[in-house]
Design a binder for these strands. Structure first.
Lengths: 132, 132
DNA sequence: CTAAACCTTCACGCTGACGTGAGGGTCAAG
DNA sequence: CTTGACCCTCACGTCAGCGTGAAGGTTTAG
């Protein structure tokens, strides 16, 4: 598949896809015309790249990660195992980020739920409990 | 406490702390000298800010989120109730952000867990399943 | 054969989150 | 009263992750 189709099917711009190749996050083949030729599996690959970038992982780490993910399909190759430590610290960073966001969302939801729907209800609350 | 101490106790540079104030992520008081005067609670606030920034959330979203993390006890004031709708969409964005981070972490965790602990284990896997 | 749609490589521009001085005030210690 | 640690406000520099043309080759429908 060519770049336009991949862009439509992933929701990622063509510019971003070319940038990903530049950063060695994708390695599409080339047609005789020079057009990029993406494999069907690149659709999933792009989604992986997107979520990792959105999660704040640096692209050079993602770039080192991808070749390790394809080869055996069963964990990292021996030569890749030196990456376990950075991977684990990234995982821990994500864990605490998720916890922070979950806490924030819980409190935000509580604030929304606690807020009266209209002025009458608020005035009733003030009458019952006193003003702030 | 002044900026240097807060910087040391959070591991964040003074420049970053001034930037956070510029972005309304922190609102330190001022001493007569003009020095910033941070509250002890700002240590925790800085950690919240840091993990959200590291998770890829834009600072203006964090700025709107931080006051929501403080439990005022009685919902929004009447004049603020017009912000309910934006707050709800922020909550939804927060939800999808959490989902993205969780997806990324799940992928990382799966990769880490599939990786053999040592070469012997890997060689055993190769012997049983064949090489790539 | 031609026009539209699709692709290519530069290459400059932009935003966010700071880094890095420059030039200067504040303040406790000697 | 000066030195050194600490703080201030500009203001330009940097890097990642793209956006946005410019100038031109390729493919396909009519």
């Amino acid at each position: 598949m060519r770049i336009g189709e991949l862009a439509r099917r992933t929701g990622v711009t063509e510019r971003a896809l070319r940038y990903y190749e530049e950063q060695n996050l994708l390695r599409p083949a080339r047609l005789p015309s020079g057009y990029r030729d993406y494999a069907p599996s690149d659709i999933e690959a792009v989604r992986h790249v997107r979520s990792m970038l959105a999660a704040g992982l640096p692209s050079h780490l993602i770039a080192e990660l991808l070749p390790c993910m394809v080869d055996t399909g069963n964990g990292l190759m021996p030569g890749c195992r030196s990456m376990l430590e950075p991977l684990e610290s990234e995982r821990d960073r994500l864990t605490s980020a998720i916890e922070e966001l979950t806490t924030a969302r819980t409190q935000l939801t509580a604030l929304i739920d606690r807020t009266p729907e209209d002025d009458a209800e608020y005035d009733a609350w003030v009458a019952a409990n006193g003003a702030a």
